[in-house]
Simulated assay, not measured.
Amino acid sequence: MKLSNYENAIAKHYNSLSLSRFPLTCWDFYSKSFDKFRLTLSDANLLNRIVKDNKWNTTWDYKEELTSDTVIVVTDAQLSIVFASKNMVKMNGYTPNEVIGNSPKMFQGKLTNEKISKEISEAVKAKQPFDKVILNYCKDGALYKCHIKGFPVFDSNGKLINFIAFEKIAA
């Protein structure tokens, strides 16, 4: 009998408080945000290591790109992919491990505009930045328009070290 009085008193007390109840789904939001943060941090650490190891002569701040839907791809001077941000999977289905060691041409196919591809190639050969929209292929063969802003990266001696591209789905 006394236990039910205690339970009633506790219930009355909690009902008098202005507590907000959150559905269990709020943990899902936290989990998704935490996973994105974890992947972004991992990408930032890998990218910072490339910058340091290759002695990039740059003042770029990648925080905004790393925390957005922008995919970052870095190649060596011979155009072999050495880094791809983990959010690439969302854009085209490829994981970074699947693209590292390949050329960015792996995303092109028979419907890719040859003129735009040639313009990008000429900018790369001239060690110049470029800003183009090109038709690329997803891992499953689906097409997507990719807006690419590419930049050559030099070391403190002016030697071409890498290329970096910031990519987004184009409207």
Rank of each mutant, 00 (worst) to 15 (best):
F22T: 03
S103C: 15
K127F: 00
S4I: 11
A77V: 02
K2N: 06
D155A: 03
S121P: 00
F154A: 05
K90A: 13
F29W: 00
Y14M: 14
R21W: 09
V73N: 05
D28R: 06
N136A: 15
A142L: 07
N57M: 11
N57T: 04
R21A: 13
S85R: 04
I81F: 01
N113L: 07
F107N: 02
V99I: 15
E114F: 05
K12E: 10
N15K: 12
D61I: 11
K159A: 08
I169Y: 03
K86H: 08
A11Q: 11
Y30A: 12
V71L: 05
A126T: 00
G109W: 13
I10S: 03
S103P: 13
H13E: 13
A142P: 01
A165I: 00
S33P: 00
D53E: 15
K90H: 14
C26V: 15
D43I: 14
K52D: 14
V124L: 08
L47R: 06
F151G: 01
F154D: 08
R21D: 04
T75F: 02
I116Q: 04
T58N: 10
N102F: 12
M106C: 03
S31D: 11
E114T: 12
P96R: 08
M106A: 04
P152I: 02
N97I: 10
P104L: 10
N87Y: 03
V82L: 05
Y14N: 12
A77D: 04
G150S: 07
T75I: 05
Y62P: 11
H147A: 10
E7N: 08
G158P: 10
K145I: 00
A126V: 00
T59D: 14
I120A: 02
S18A: 12
W60D: 15
K2I: 01
F130C: 02
E122I: 12
L135N: 14
V71Q: 04
G109K: 15
F163D: 01
G93M: 13
